[in-house]
């Protein structure tokens, strides 16, 4: 994982973990790697990962069991909530971006439809 040095690294790692949970890569009740192992894997400081786990625990996305480790929450609602939040953020960025380009709501929707149609046919350059 490479980081954007302008954004706090712990936020970037949090984001990635949330994505993995929403996408199902990490499932409810899964055990998270230890702080040290994840730090080694991501080539970041142990304290950074520590902070990630603390923040995620505070948001009830992870829960820790003393002496055993951290686990992904099994609460479906929480996961659903993260999903909504992340989707909301993406949509917000998208809509704002389109508005800046001068698209009104109608043409934005149209552009989106057209794009998705093309993508379904595999005509989109990545």
């Amino acid at each position: 994982m490479s980081f954007d040095p302008r954004i706090p690294i712990y936020l970037q790692i949090m984001e990635q973990i949330k994505k993995d949970i929403v996408s199902g890569k990490l499932k409810g009740g899964d055990k998270m790697p230890s702080v040290r192992a994840l730090a080694k894997e991501l080539q970041v400081n142990v304290n950074t990962v520590q902070r990630v786990y603390q923040e995620l625990e505070r948001d009830n996305i992870l829960f820790s069991q003393r002496g055993i480790g951290s686990f992904v929450t099994e609460n479906k609602e929480t996961i659903e909530q993260i999903k909504e939040e992340m989707a909301h953020e993406l949509l917000e960025n998208f809509v704002h971006g389109m508005r800046e380009l001068g698209f009104d709501d109608k043409s934005t929707l149209l552009a989106l439809q057209q794009y998705m149609g093309r993508e379904a046919q595999g005509n989109v350059k990545d």
């Binding site: 954007d4 040095p5 302008r6 954004i7 706090p8 690294i9 712990y10 936020l11 950074t48 902070r51």
Partner: peptide, 11 residues
């Protein structure tokens, strides 16, 4: 560093 990144929006 993460706090500085957050408050100053800079690397």
């Amino acid at each position: 560093v993460d706090d500085l990144r957050q408050t100053r929006q800079k690397s």
